[in-house]
């Protein structure tokens, strides 16, 4: 082959190689794509199984039938749900025992998360104004406090609120109880269920339940609010000040509206977390004011041993949480649209 022919052949071969590279996907890309698909599909399947199967099982069990003196059998019996809302004697009589428990569950969770946000919001706002070292120190402290379990926190509050060694004892020793008696405040506190004729009494009470719940989620509120509050453009606050807004007006008209969506998200997260609070309620709420999670535990592992009824209560609780979340999102979107 002459030099010219060799050069022409090489040029043609080079062109073909380029053409192939342009038109055909390289083998390794196809290979990688399919491997990626397999991994993703596998992970998705595992996740679906792990997350959905317990829920589906609970839903299935909730329609099961309790055998008196024994366990339960698979069935399609909706009476467990009827019992949650109107009692076991329905339709002859209506008992709202579990409906009340659901009400207490929602009320404690809403109040606990609102109180936590009410304290966390200003704290986090002022924290975000501090110097970096101060912010870092506080955040480390708050993150560290997350390592405390609900049991540990409840134990601390139990001691703090107990009649013999906690705040009531301190009130008595320091003369605050006597002062409350003299001023008539003890009678008022007694009416509110926070005192007996001799001294203040914080256990058991709904106040102690809600406050402990708020304390439980307060660090989460700070951590969740820290990012949006520290990202607020300072010049917006300064602009509002130059237009005549005082500190409270700035907070009301600029800061809160700007971070309303993260605040709403935080509120929902805390609410969902508190719906499942168990230890706090068993310690601080009297039996008549206890919540659905306590009842669920009683049904599944506790005294009543009725897994289908426990599962039905769990499904109702889950559905209620879902309804609350979707209603909140719908309302915030509606407010957003009206704002526009």
């Amino acid at each position: 082959m002459s030099d010219l022919a060799t050069a022409s052949y090489l040029a043609q071969a080079d062109n073909e190689t380029r053409l192939n590279k342009t038109l055909r996907p390289p083998f390794d890309v196809v290979h990688r794509f399919s491997a990626q698909s397999i991994i993703m599909t596998t992970i998705a399947a595992i996740l679906l199984f792990v997350f959905l199967s317990p829920i589906l099982l609970v839903v299935a069990v909730s329609f099961g039938e309790k055998i008196e003196g024994a366990s339960w059998v698979w069935a399609f019996d909706p009476s467990n749900y009827a019992r949650v809302f109107v009692g076991i004697g329905w339709p002859d009589e209506i008992t709202l025992l579990y409906a009340y428990k659901l009400g207490y569950t929602l009320a404690y969770a809403v109040l606990g998360s609102l109180i936590a946000i009410a304290f966390a919001f200003p704290f986090t706002y002022f924290l975000s104004q501090c110097s970096r070292p101060v912010q870092a120190a506080w955040l480390v402290f708050i993150l560290a406090s997350l390592s405390m379990s609900e049991v540990f926190i409840v134990m601390g509050w139990d001691i703090m609120l107990s009649n013999r060694s906690g705040l009531p004892a301190l009130f008595k020793a320091t003369g605050v109880t006597e002062w409350l008696k003299e001023t008539g405040w003890l009678a008022v506190l007694k009416d509110w269920g926070l005192a007996n004729p001799r001294n203040v009494k914080f256990k058991t009470s709904q106040m102690a339940t809600v406050l402990t719940m708020a304390y439980l989620v307060w660090p989460y509120a700070v951590i969740l609010l820290y990012a949006p509050l520290s990202r607020i453009d300072r010049s917006m606050i300064e602009a509002a000040r130059t237009m005549g807004a005082g500190s409270f007006t700035v907070m009301r008209t600029v800061i809160v509206p700007v971070v309303r969506i993260p605040v709403m998200g935080t509120l929902l997260l805390l609410f969902v977390y508190l719906l499942g609070a168990y230890v706090t309620v068993t310690y601080f709420a009297e039996p008549a004011h206890q919540t659905l999670p306590v009842s669920i535990y009683e049904a599944i592992r506790g005294a009543t041993l009725n897994a289908p009824f426990g599962a039905a209560q769990a499904v109702v609780l889950l559905s209620t949480a879902g309804v609350f979340i979707f209603a909140s999102l719908w309302l915030s979107r509606l407010a957003e649209k009206r704002g526009r």
């Binding site: 010049s235 300064e238 602009a239 600029v254 509206p257 700007v258 704002g339």
Partner: peptide, 11 residues
Amino acid sequence: MVFQSFALFPH
């Protein structure tokens, strides 16, 4: 005052 970033209220 007009700020460098304009500081308009997004809400």
